[in-house]
Structure formats: structure tokens, C-alpha cells
């Protein structure tokens, strides 16, 4: 088991290196950081001096090498745009993104699983058809459109919920959390729903398909014949057996939720990592972009690892 985890962590280093390499080879095409850092009146000579100081004239390989070596030593560099330490900037944005992602995931599970079970058990009901239709629409509309529609309905027209930001936050050590105030929760609802809609639809359809499959299997028929109460049959026997593939997909999707929260964060001015990344692209802030991508890669690796470990916990057959 420990060997397994160890092996995965070693692999993750290579994944991150590969991501950093790809990222760095693309940065040259993003734009020129110098013109974004200096004012219009700055002379060409001063711009060149700055470019030299920041090592932007060095060949790609040595820039990448410097970035990697510094990172391995725990030095994440300084932002071109704000001159702040990148590690600090990203660390301060992680809580916002993680909280948003977790709540989005919870929404998708709490709504998606029961809806999936229901639509599987009553495949021809009117409610089922309605749910399937609505979620299909939900999944077909781009995230930012959903976000803006929600903002205009609940924020502007009805005035029930805030339109942007995290509202009131509470600092627990370094962790800035929205979980401990009503205001924080109110600010979370719209972005979390926006981010969770796609997940919700996916979870529901997955649970539905799995459930319909399981309900046709022999052991369910026998259990029905034995007179096992329906409630116990559905939730204990059938649902539990649908969970392995569901957890795989949802787990893997969680990495995606974090990575793709960029769009939601931008629509709701949610101060997470994604928003920071967008600003960094606008200002060609190479150190921040590089570290962000590596952190996201690390995140994906960790999520995958956790999914593998969860398998073992859920499926007794894998323990042998």
C-alpha cells in the first residue's frame, strides 16, 4: 500500500515536470511581459534592461531549467505584475477555489444521486422526463451564460443573493473561509450551483444508467422474490453496487471542477486561483502562470490517487 502511494507520488513529479515544460514552451506565445509591466513612456533602453534582468532574453531551456530548479528548492519566484511571492499569492487563493469546488461537488451529489435513483426507478414518469429535459438544457448552455443568467435573476431582479465576491469571510489561521457566516454562504450559492450544474447532470445520468443496469441483474430479482423490502433493496443493495464507477468518474471530475472553475470564478469575481490565473494571462505574468499550472497538475495527481484508494475502501473484492 505504501509502496503504491510512494510510486504514485514519484510519478506525479514527472507529470508536473511535463506540465511545466509544456507550459513554458507555450509562454513565449502568450505575449511580452515587459510591455505589460512598464508604462508607455518607458524608454526602449529601460525595457531592454528589465528584460535582461528578468532573464527573458535567455534561451527557453535555461529559463525552464531555472524555474524547475528554483521550484524544487521551494522557491516559487515573484510575480512580474505585483512583485509579490508567487507561493503566497497562490496559497492565499487556494481556500476560495477549494471551498467553491467542494460545495459544487456536494450539490451535484446531494441532488444528482437521488435524482439518478428516482429517474432509474420511474423511467417513464412525467417527473423523470422533466428532470431529464431540464438537465439536458443545463448541460448544453455554457457555464458563463448560466452564471450570468443566475446573477441577473437572483442578484439583480430578485435581489436575494450577492452578485460577486465571497462576502464575509473568516480567517482560521491562514485559511480564509466562507463557511462560517451566513453572508459567506449566501455568496457561495450562485457560483457553486453554476459550477455544479454540469457535474450534477453527469452524476445523475451515471447513477441512472448504473441503477437501471443493476436493477436488471439476477441478485436483485432474487432479492425481490425473497421479499426484501423495496426501500432496502434500492438503497442498500442496488445503489451500493452502482457506486464504484460513479466514484471513479466523480473523483476524476473533481480535478476538472477545480481546474475549470476559472470560468465560474471570472463570472462571479470569485477570488480563487482561477481568477488569479486569468489576471496573470492578461498581464503575461509568467511565474504565476507556471506555478498555477504545476499546482493544478499536482492536484489532478492527488485526486487520482485518492480515487484509487477509495476503490479499495468501497469494493471489498479489491482488498484480497
Amino acid at each position: 500500500m505504501f509502496y503504491f502511494i510512494y510510486k504514485r507520488l514519484i510519478q506525479s513529479v514527472f507529470v508536473m515536470l511535463a506540465v511545466a515544460f509544456l507550459a513554458f514552451s507555450l509562454f513565449r506565445f502568450v505575449g511580452d511581459p515587459i510591455t505589460q509591466m512598464t508604462g508607455v513612456e518607458t524608454s526602449v533602453v529601460d525595457q531592454e534592461r528589465l528584460r535582461e534582468e528578468l532573464g527573458l532574453n535567455d534561451p527557453f531551456i535555461s529559463q525552464f531549467g531555472r524555474f524547475t530548479v528554483d521550484m524544487l528548492q521551494g522557491d516559487f519566484g515573484y510575480s512580474f505584475r505585483t512583485r509579490q511571492p508567487v507561493a503566497e499569492m497562490i496559497a492565499s487563493r487556494i481556500p476560495a477555489t477549494l471551498e467553491l469546488g467542494v460545495v459544487a461537488l456536494l450539490i451535484s451529489l446531494v441532488v444528482g444521486i437521488p435524482a439518478g435513483v428516482y429517474t432509474a426507478l420511474r423511467p417513464r414518469g412525467v417527473i423523470t422526463q422533466t428532470i431529464l429535459m431540464t438537465t439536458l438544457i443545463g448541460i448544453s448552455i455554457p457555464t458563463f451564460v448560466i452564471g450570468i443568467m443566475l446573477i441577473f435573476l437572483f442578484g439583480v431582479q430578485l435581489g436575494w443573493l450577492p452578485t460577486f465576491g465571497r462576502g464575509e469571510t473568516v480567517n482560521i489561521g491562514f485559511w480564509e473561509s466562507s463557511f462560517f457566516s451566513i453572508d459567506g454562504w449566501r455568496a457561495l450559492i450562485l457560483p457553486a450551483v453554476t459550477l455544479g450544474v454540469y457535474q450534477l447532470t453527469l452524476t445523475m445520468r451515471l447513477v441512472r444508467a448504473q441503477m437501471m443496469d443493476v436493477m436488471r441483474s439476477d441478485y436483485i430479482r432474487f432479492a425481490t422474490a425473497r421479499g426484501v423490502p423495496m426501500r432496502q433493496l434500492y438503497f442498500r443493495h442496488a445503489l451500493a453496487n452502482t457506486m464504484v464507477p460513479v466514484i471513479t468518474i466523480i473523483g476524476l471530475q473533481f480535478g476538472g471542477v477545480i481546474a475549470f472553475s476559472i470560468v465560474t470564478e471570472s463570472v462571479f469575481q470569485w477570488p480563487g486561483m482561477g481568477l488569479l490565473f486569468l489576471e496573470s494571462i492578461r498581464f503575461v505574468d509568467i511565474p504565476v502562470m507556471g506555478v498555477y499550472l504545476v499546482v493544478i497538475a499536482f492536484f489532478f495527481v492527488v485526486v487520482n490517487l485518492l480515487v484509487d484508494l477509495l476503490y479499495v475502501a468501497i469494493d471489498p473484492r479489491l482488498r484480497v
Binding site: 450570468i148 446573477i151 439583480v156 435581489g159 452578485t163 460577486f164 471570472s266 463570472v267 469575481q269 486569468l278
Partner: peptide, 18 residues
């Protein structure tokens, strides 16, 4: 002061009174 990068979000924030 809050920076709001997305123009639609900015308008919504103004119209909602925030």
C-alpha cells in the same frame, strides 16, 4: 475598492446595489 474584470459582472453588481 474591488476589481471586477468581467464587464457583465460589474454591471450586475452595480444594478443589484452592491
Amino acid at each position: 475598492f474591488t476589481p471586477i474584470g468581467n464587464p457583465a459582472t460589474g454591471i450586475a453588481a452595480l444594478l443589484s446595489g452592491e
